[in-house]
Design a protein around this nucleic acid. Structure first.
Length: 501
RNA sequence: UGCAUGGUAGCUCAAUGGCAGAGCGCCCGGCUGUUAACCGGGAUGUUGCAGGUUCGAGUCCUGCCCGUGCAGCCA
């Protein structure tokens, strides 16, 4: 197919030729007789130079009239210029205004979260969002490639279900022709059925949780990848999860250099995502949490934060003192810096408020409870790569988990915790195979056995050892991108109190 | 749901209980290589809502609404 225009990502192959770009105006600078149009087309950014002496009057008028996010077609010579974004520049010979944008609300300056979230449909055009969502795309491709190359069959679990797997409080209920139904919370039970048909499968679909959680880690609608493998035990499951994450990180580092740079991701921590991952049993993790080593580490972090707080406060005071005599450009610089300082200071203050509680929570952690968010964060601070925690107390895990044959109090579950405080991105384990054990567990969890008859059939007809896990896509993208909130990792996030746009 | 924190110009944010301000954006003018360009000028306000204290409230008090984060729960 021959296109009558070229894409910015292909400019390197087109150096020295003349081509037409079609895109939107990202930013504009100018002086007398000269405009610099920064154009985006979805594949990248490029600067187009419009010189009044080298274009016709209509082209000059078009460049003059173009406002932010106006649609443009720019024809010109493609030249290399290391100084420019993307390394190339287009010297325009013709400019056409395809459509003029009204006042675009998102300027190249800073905006608040609520303002941007209300305009998410436009925010997607910003460079940082472009980069994050391209990393998401790369990760999705890595996931499919990883499983497909190993003979896994992708199978979708239903989104409408009648099964309440872990209690109905976190399920979105709907009316299914007069019958109660729910939006799925996990495809796992159906995944098990499909694994008994195909051997190795993975699901890739949306899941819904009606948790009233307003945190940087929670969405009410998110995408989950759930592999399920017949004849896999817990150790094989952990090996697979580890290889899987190494693949995702390696691919992103190799293929998303530009995107990670735009986001400002320090890639050094990602370079360390290599096998083997540290593996701790739950009991070992509890010992580590309670240890003097953990207390010392938290003390050191606290001291570092206090130093930073002092430095920032000093800098702000010095700036305020200098403000009176400062030149205009310097005042502007100080204003911008003050906003940065205040933002960081409130983060530091928050952390300083939290650390004493975290230290107490870790020191007094009791064997038998589940880890809180802070405990997970504290654990991961001890390591430079993802860690796997396995063999949890059965009481804190789901009914379908297999018990540890060596210790009946334990379930053969495992979680993978991402480094840098990103926390749980994978949860899974080996599934119970015994029919009577499952019936007892369903009863013990207060679940209606009738709803699980089909699931119990899997144990009646050729029950085999099997295992699997679930990966939260958005949490994984958040970690790989090194950003602080899941809401930027999905095109249209669904959060508590947010259903639009 | 509990705790913390915030709501001031279109946006991001300042303002000891004492004349509501800056930068950006917008409009006008200048500038032939800018990098969130720069320089000069201009317009822009129901300080979230409702009460209260006070000579005087953006600031203090009470209630409500909305945002953000943390906890619980989880991927």
């Amino acid at each position: 197919m021959a296109l009558d225009f070229v894409y910015i990502e292909d400019l390197a192959q087109l150096e020295g030729t003349t081509g037409t770009l079609k895109g939107w105006l990202y930013n504009k600078r100018g002086s007398k007789g000269l405009y610099f149009l920064i154009v985006r087309d979805g594949t990248g950014l490029v600067q187009c130079v419009v010189n009044q002496e080298e274009v016709d009057a209509a082209s000059w008028d078009a460049a003059d009239a173009a406002t932010q996010e106006s649609a443009l077609a720019v024809t010109g010579r493609i030249v290399k210029d290391e100084r420019q974004v993307g390394g190339f520049e287009v010297q325009a010979t013709h400019v056409e205004l395809i459509s003029q944008a009204e006042d675009y609300p998102i300027t190249p300056k800073e905006h608040g979260v609520e303002f941007l979230m209300d305009r998410r449909h436009l925010w997607l055009r910003s460079r940082r969002q472009w980069a994050i969502l391209r990393v998401r795309n790369r990760i999705i491709m890595s996931i499919h490639e990883f499983f497909q190359e190993q003979g896994f069959v992708q199978m979708d679990a239903p989104i409408l279900t009648g099964n309440a797997v872990e209690g109905t409080t976190t399920l979105f209920g709907i009316d299914y022709f007069g019958e109660p139904a729910y939006l799925t919370q996990s495809g796992q039970l159906h995944g098990e059925a499909m694994a008994m048909a195909m051997g190795k499968i993975y699901t890739f679909g949306p899941t819904f949780r009606a948790e009233k959680s307003k945190t940087r880690r929670h969405l009410t609608e998110f995408w989950m990848i759930e592999p399920e493998m017949a004849f896999y035990d817990l150790a094989m499951n952990m090996d697979l999860a580890e290889a899987f994450l190494v693949r995702i990180a390696t691919d992103a580092l190799r293929d998303c250099q530009t995107e990670l740079e735009v986001i400002g991701r320090d890639t050094a921590p990602l370079e360390k995502v290599k096998s083997p991952f540290p593996r701790l049993s739950y009991s070992e993790a509890v010992d580590l949490l309670r240890s003097d080593e953990t207390t010392a580490m938290l003390n050191a972090r606290e001291a570092a934060l206090q130093d930073e707080q002092q430095q920032l406060t000093d800098e702000r005071d010095a700036n305020q003192k200098a403000y009176g005599q400062a030149k205009k450009w310097r005042k502007r610089q100080i204003d911008a810096r003050e906003i940065e300082i205040n933002k960081r200071l409130s983060e530091v203050e928050e952390a300083l408020r939290n650390i004493p509680q975290w230290r107490e929570s870790a020191k007094n952690f009791e064997w038998g409870s589940d880890f809180g968010g802070s405990d997970e964060t504290v654990l991961t601070w001890h390591f430079d790569r993802p860690i796997i925690v396995h063999r949890y107390p059965a009481v804190v895990k789901a009914f379908y988990m297999k018990r540890d044959p060596d210790d009946d109090r334990l379930a053969l579950g495992m979680d993978v915790l991402a480094p840098e405080g990103y926390g749980e991105i994978i949860g899974g384990g080996e599934r119970a195979t015994d029919l009577q054990f499952l019936k007892d567990q369903i009863a013990a969890h207060g679940l209606p056995e009738s709803a699980f008859e089909w699931y119990l059939d899997l144990r009646r007809y050729g029950s085999v050892p099997h295992a699997g896990f679930g990966l939260g896509l958005e949490r994984t993208v958040t970690w790989i991108c090194g950003i602080d909130h899941v809401r930027e990792t999905i095109p249209f996030p669904r959060l508590l109190g947010r259903l639009k746009p």
